[in-house]
């Protein structure tokens, strides 16, 4: 029986692209949350954590509304890129970024808070600029946090189902990720295909997590 590779590759692509974007977006956000004295911090923290609490269908429903070409966001996206956000890979990426945001921001924020200001001040009085301090002191010290954030974001995006169903549907090569494919295989009683896809995902996920936790033991800088 040939295994359906399309959903597997699409899932990997979605998780990879989402994770890269999340690290780029999540780092400054987590940095700001870790260091700001402003009261707005709580509001932003709460908003960031929303995807942890909301049922994926509720989040997916709102995203569907905002992504629709009838809404200002959906319309603008359509004008600029030529494709609609709904039922497209791009829309899935945007939705995944929002959905997995807390899994990037929370570990990074915790790491930055654990590092604290002390090493950054030490670098400042030596002559390191703010960017220099971030790149040469905070980032290397935060490597474990980055590893955790990367793995959690990647894994959480792979495990996504409800939001994809709401905003992406089931378009092969565009939005038909493994979780959707397995769901459909079960619905159509194609248990053999469901078994194959599920087993691949199970083994892959375990292998990634095992590798990460093994590497984690050997990291040089331990905080707390």
């Amino acid at each position: 029986m040939p295994i359906e590779t399309g959903p597997l590759l699409l899932t990997l692509k979605l998780a990879s692209v989402t994770t890269v974007i999340l690290l780029l977006v999540g780092t400054p956000l987590a940095w700001w949350l870790a260091h700001t004295p402003r009261r707005a911090k709580s509001v932003v923290e709460a908003a960031t954590a929303l995807p942890l609490v909301l049922p994926p269908t509720v989040l997916g429903f709102y995203l569907l509304i905002f992504f629709s070409p009838d809404s200002p966001l959906g319309a603008a996206w359509l004008r600029v890129t030529g494709t609609a956000l709904t039922f497209s890979f791009q829309g899935l990426v945007v939705a995944s970024v929002i959905y997995s945001l807390p899994f990037t921001v929370q570990p990074l924020q915790a790491t930055f808070e654990a590092i604290g200001r002390a090493p950054l001040e030490a670098a400042a009085v030596i002559g390191a600029s703010p960017l220099d301090r971030f790149l040469t002191v905070a980032s290397p010290m935060a490597l474990r946090g980055y590893l955790t954030a990367t793995v959690l974001s990647f894994a959480h995006t792979i495990g996504e189902f409800g939001v994809v169903l709401m905003v992406g549907g089931n378009i092969p090569g565009q939005t038909r990720v493994v979780s959707i494919a397995v769901f459909e295989n079960v619905e159509t009683l194609d248990y053999a295909q469901a078994h194959a896809l599920s087993a691949v995902l199970l083994v892959f996920s375990f292998a990634v997590l095992l590798a990460v936790y093994s590497i984690n033991r050997f990291f040089p800088v331990r905080l707390r």
């Binding site: 090493p119 030490a122 009085v125 030596i126 002559g127 002191v137 010290m141």
Partner: peptide, 16 residues
């Protein structure tokens, strides 16, 4: 970082 100072902290703050 532009003051050209040296600072020795009580807790040293070497980069770990």
């Amino acid at each position: 970082h532009r003051r050209g100072i040296g600072y020795v902290f009580q807790d040293a703050r070497l980069f770990p």
